[in-house]
Design a protein around this nucleic acid. Structure first.
Length: 542
RNA sequence: GCCCCCGUAGCUCAGUAUGGAUAGAGCAGUAGUUUCCUAAACUAUUGGCCGGAGGUUCGAAUCCUCUCGGGGGUACCA
C-alpha cells in the first residue's frame, strides 16, 4: 500500500520541484473517515516553503497523476493532511495476491542479499533458564524471524563463557555437593549455586564413579560435567519454544585463536591502552565515555570487556550487514564501552543495534517473586512452559514492547482466561478451517472472479486489514518490534470475527458465497503467516 | 552522585523514532445477541487533567528543563 502511494506521489515531482528527493511517510489514520492512508507531508513542508499547508496539499494533489482504479479519492482534511482512499478493486486485488503467494505472502525482498546476526540468550551454563531468559529467548528468535521475512539471511547466535570465575564457582559448587555425598563435612558458601540441580549432577558423578574424584579440583571434571549437563538442559528448554541457535560461540575460542592477544596488541599500537597499578587499562575517557576501565586485571586475568570487544570484532570480520545484540537491562552498562572501543578501532558501529529488554516481574499469588539464579529462587522457563504451553509463552513475551517492565502474573497465565489474546487469534484460524471444511462438503469452492461483490462494511473492513499486512511486517522487521505484529493480528482476527458474524457463506447466492470463501481463505493465510513470524502455532481445530 | 528503562482507563498495555485531525485496545463492569458455517464469538455502553510543574510551537502523551514515584546499572564480578 505504502509503496503504491509513494510511486503515485512521485509523479508530482514532474511539476513540483520541492517534491523531489522526498522520502514519503504515511500513517494509517485512526479513523476510517480519514482514509486508508494519510500523510502530513504538506504540514512538514509548510515550514520550509512558508506557505499554508492546505495550499501546499492542494498543489500536490493537482500535480499527481493517478489511476482512478487504484485511488478512488484524495482529500485534504484538518490542518493539512492528505488522505487517500483506495478503490474497491485495488483492495480486493490483494485477495488474489494472497491466494497466489500463500505461505510466503508478506515476505519482502527489501533486504535480500543482506546478512544479519542476532545474538540472544547467551546465558552462561550455570543453571536452568528462568522466565527472564525466556523473554530474551522469545524476543531474539522472533526478531530473527522478522528479519528473515524482510529478506535477511539470519544467523542466530549464542555466546557463552566457560572460563572465568562464574564457572569456577559452579564447578566448586558441584565438588562440594559431591564431597557431601561422600560423607564429608562441608561448608557450602552462600554465594555458591544453591539449586537442587547441582546436587543431582554431583549425585550422578557419585553414582557412576564413587569416590574416584575425591581429590579433584573444581576446574576439572566437576565444571566440565556441570557445564555439559546444564547446557543440554538449556538447549532442551529452548527447543520446547522452537528456538534453535545456528552458532554457539565460545569465549575460549577467542583465546585459542589468538584474537585476544591480537586485540591487546592493537590497542597498544593505537595508544589506547596503558599500564597502571599492575593492570592494563583502556582509555575510555578519551573515547567519550565516563572513565577508563580495566581490561586486564593485575592478576593477569582479563575482565569481561576485553573478550566482549574481541567477540564483536569477529562479528565484523564475519561481514554481517546488521548485528543485533539483545540483552537484559542488567547489562546496560557494558555496551557503551564495547561500542566505543570498536569505533576507536575503525569499525562501523552503526551496524550494531543493541536492544535492551527490561526485566520481567513475576507475580505469584499477588506477590513479587525476587529472582536469583545463585539463590535458586526463581521460576524456570520450563515450569512456565509446563503451566501455560509454548504458544502462550511466545505470544505473551511478543505482545509487549521489549522496553516495558513486564508484569507476569503467574496465576493469571495459568488460568487460560480470556485475558490471553493468543486464543482469540488461534480461534479465528480454527474457525476458518472449520468453515472451509463445511462448505467444501456442500460443493462451494472459492473463486476470485467476483470479488467486487464483497461490499458490506465487514467485508471491506477485512479487505483493508489484509491490505496492511505487508507494510506491518516490513515495519516490524525494520524496528525490531514484534508487538506490532501481535496488535495487527488482533485487529485482523477481530475484523474476521465480525465478517464471520455478518457475512454467511452457506445459504448465500453462489457467486457471493464463493467470493466470501475466497476472502475467508485469504484471512486464514494471513493469520497463519503472522503467527508463523511469532513462532506460535495455528491450530486447525480448537 | 552519575547512566539506562518505565509512569497513559479499575487491571495489563499500545501510541513517543518522523509533534498534528475528537488519546486507543484487551480484560474487568453494565445492557443485549444463538432454531443459522465453532458463543474461545458478536453488538451497544461506562470509564482519562497521558505522574506533576514550567517551556518551545499555529499545534505536545510525543521535543526541552526541572521534579516526584518504581525498576536496573554504575568493580581489577559477568
Amino acid at each position: 500500500m505504502k509503496n503504491t502511494l509513494s510511486s503515485i506521489l512521485n509523479t508530482a515531482s514532474k511539476k513540483l520541484e520541492y517534491i523531489k528527493n522526498i522520502d514519503f511517510t504515511f500513517e494509517k489514520p485512526k479513523s476510517d473517515e480519514h482514509g486508508d492512508l494519510s500523510t502530513n507531508l504538506a504540514m512538514t513542508l509548510s515550514k520550509q516553503l512558508k506557505k499554508n499547508p492546505r495550499q501546499i496539499a492542494q498543489e500536490i494533489i493537482d500535480s499527481i497523476e493517478f489511476d482512478k482504479n487504484i485511488v478512488e479519492k484524495i482529500e485534504i482534511a484538518g490542518p493539512g493532511f492528505i488522505n487517500f482512499f483506495f478503490s474497491h478493486s485495488y483492495l480486493s486485488e490483494k485477495v488474489k495476491q494472497i491466494h497466489a503467494e500463500k505461505e510466503v505472502f508478506g515476505k519482502s525482498k527489501k533486504y535480500q542479499g543482506k546478512r544479519a546476526n542476532v545474538e540472544f540468550v547467551s546465558a552462561n551454563p550455570t543453571g536452568p533458564l528462568t522466565v527472564g531468559h525466556g523473554r530474551n529467548a522469545v524476543s531474539g528468535d522472533t526478531i530473527a524471524n522478522m528479519l528473515e521475512w524482510i529478506g535477511y539471511e539470519v544467523d542466530r547466535e549464542y555466546y557463552f563463557n566457560n572460563a572465568g570465575r562464574q564457572m569456577r564457582v559452579l564447578g566448586d559448587s558441584v565438588r562440594l555437593r559431591y564431597l557431601e555425598l561422600l560423607g564429608q563435612q562441608i561448608d557450602f558458601p552462600q554465594d555458591y549455586y544453591q539449586g537442587d540441580y547441582i546436587k543431582e549432577i554431583a549425585k550422578d558423578i557419585f553414582v557412576e564413579s564413587g569416590d574416584k574424584y575425591i581429590s579433584e579440583t573444581a576446574e576439572g571434571i566437576f565444571k566440565e560435567r556441570a557445564e555439559r549437563e546444564i547446557f543440554k538442559d538449556i538447549e532442551r528448554t529452548l527447543k520446547r519454544l522452537n528456538i534453535k541457535h545456528s552458532i554457539y560461540f565460545n569465549e575460549n575460542s577467542l583465546y585459542e585463536d589468538g584474537k585476544i592477544e591480537a586485540l591487546l596488541k592493537l590497542f597498544e599500537e593505537k595508544g589506547l591502552s596503558y599500564q597502571k597499578d599492575g593492570a592494563t587499562w583502556l582509555k575510555f575517557s578519551e573515547l567519550g565515555n565516563q572513565q577508563d576501565k580495566v581490561i586486564i586485571k593485575s592478576t593477569g586475568e582479563p575482565t569481561y570487556r576485553l573478550p566482549d570487544i574481541a567477540y564483536h570484532v569477529t562479528k565484523f570480520d564475519r561481514n554481517y550487514d546488521l548485528i543485533i545484540d539483545l540483552f537484559g537491562s542488567d547489562h546496560n552498562a557494558t555496551y557503551p564501552d564495547v561500542l566505543a572501543a570498536l569505533k576507536a578501532l575503525g569499525y562501523e558501529t552503526e551496524k550494531i543495534k543493541v536492544l535492551i529488554h527490561q526485566f520481567v516481574t513475576i507475580l505469584q499469588d499477588g506477590e513479587i517473586v525476587k529472582m536469583s539464579t545463585r539463590k535458586a529462587n526463581y521460576i524456570t522457563l520450563d515450569e512456565l512452559n509446563d503451566e501455560v504451553g509454548a504458544d502462550v509463552v511466545r505470544y505473551f513475551f511478543n505482545m509487549r514492547s521489549i522496553s516495558t517492565h513486564m508484569n507476569f502474573d503467574l496465576n493469571l497465565a495459568k488460568k487460560h482466561s480470556d485475558e490471553n489474546p493468543v486464543f482469540y487469534l488461534q480461534y479465528a484460524h480454527a474457525r476458518i478451517c472449520s468453515i472451509i471444511k463445511t462448505v467444501k462438503d456442500q460443493d462451494i469452492n472459492s473463486s476470485l472472479e467476483n470479488l467486487d461483490l464483497l461490499t458490506t462494511p465487514e467485508e471491506i473492513g477485512l479487505l483493508k486489514k489484509l491490505n496492511h499486512f505487508e507494510d506491518e511486517v516490513l515495519q516490524s522487521g525494520e524496528s525490531f518490534e514484534a508487538n506490532r505484529i501481535t496488535s495487527y493480528l488482533e485487529e485482523l482476527a477481530s475484523a474476521f470475527h465480525k465478517f464471520y458474524t455478518f457475512s454467511r457463506i452457506l445459504g448465500t447466492e453462489k457467486n457471493l458465497a464463493e467470493a466470501r470463501l475466497a476472502l475467508a481463505e485469504a484471512s486464514k493465510i494471513v493469520i497463519a503467516n503472522g503467527l508463523k513470524i511469532l513462532g506460535v502455532s495455528a491450530p486447525e481445530k480448537m
